[in-house]
Amino acid sequence: MTISINDAGHVANLARLDLSAQELATYTEQLNQILAYAQELNKLNTDQVEPTYHSIETGTILREDKVIDFPNQAGLLQNGPDVSGTSFVVPRIL
C-alpha cells in the first residue's frame, strides 16, 4: 500500500493545510517512508494478538462527578479571536 499525491492532497485539505506542490511531493514521500516502516509488522503473524490501543496496559482514570468552577473565564475569552459580551465571535458560518 502506498500513498499517492492525491491521497496526501486530500488529507491536507481535510486538515486545512495549504501546501505547495513541492511540499506536497516531499510529504507524500515522507508519509510513504513511515508507512513502509510500519508495514514491517506485516512480516509477523498477529492473528492471535489482541489489538493494543495504547502503550500502557491499564484502564483509564475516572473522575468523581463533582462540579468545580474554573476561576479564570475571562482568560479563556482572551484566547478567542473576537469577543462580544461573554461569547466568542467568529465569522458567520454557512
Binding site: L62, R63, Q73, L76, L77, S87
Partner: peptide
Amino acid sequence: QPNSSACPVCTGQPGALPVLNQEAV
C-alpha cells in the same frame, strides 16, 4: 450566561487533558 461553564479542557486550550466522569459511565 454564555461560557460561564467553561474551562481549558472544554474550550480546547492546548495542553489541557480530558479525565472521564465516572457517573457518565
